[in-house]
Design a protein around this nucleic acid. Sequence first.
DNA 1: AATGCGCATCCGATTACGTCA
DNA 2: TCTGACGTAATCGGATGCGCA
Length: 282
Amino acid sequence: MAEKEDLGLSLSLSFPQNHHSLQRNLRPSLVPSSANSCSSPSTLTLNKHSWNDSSPPSDHNSESFRAEMGSIFRGIDMNILPSTADCEEEAGVSSPNSTISSVSGKRSEREGNGDELEIEKSLSKDQSAILEENFKEHNTLNPKQKLALAKQLGLRPRQVEVWFQNRRARTKLKQTEVDCEFLKRCCENLTEENQRLQKEVQELRALKLSSTQFYMQMTPPTTLTMCTSCERVAVPPNPPSSTTVDPRSHHQLAQTHQRAFHINPWAPSAARRPLDALRPRS
DNA sequence: AATGCGCATCCGATTACGTCA
DNA sequence: TCTGACGTAATCGGATGCGCA
């Protein structure tokens, strides 16, 4: 199908501001507002261009419009193809709910009732190309343009209308697929990021545990006793040291002067300097 | 001004049918 | 030749907006 390529990522259509139906139904597509972990898809926005010389769709029911249509198409056979479709297109408009277009029954039954009824079941390449060109410019038609296009292509206005409806549906489907793919990539990237962060947390926890175990193996903080009189450090009875003082014999009268303090290996003092090398580095 | 009706158009879902691998 | 997948024209039903009485 030739139009598949036309549904590609470069699709960018704009819409008239005042067309209620398409404003209602064609919502903005998924486009990230800012850079994130996902690369943005090409800016796929469904917009609509209004026809340059077209009147607003809201006035297509007005008397002036009807009068205009009457003057334009009076005496012109707009339906080159099927003569039987005249009753449908007589007013220049068509509706899926109209009597003709809503007739029930299978197509083969509806269309196989005589040689005079020869409705093309598929559009020619030229017709499709022209429709495609028009769709690229504006993906909706007002009645005037629909009639003109139908006349140009030798199709019933209803056929043109249906073609545009189906074309919009295909465009939307394609857009949905693109959006879905974009979200899928976002999800993949976020999952990847999440796994990476979880791994990092595990590593940090393991590092913290190993540090704790290391210092647990060290001797607990020693409680030393200093004589406030001579400022010599007294140690517990065992083992005896030549450079320390036995608090039981030393200044026995001054025991009340003794005060205890702890050696904190992490304290910012000169006393712990030898431990600095053992301190885990961040 | 509010209301109901008819009309036109839209969309989503579905059907019918042709084409092609 | 048969068959299933696919694309597309067409239909159906519901929703919505607009004009008019």
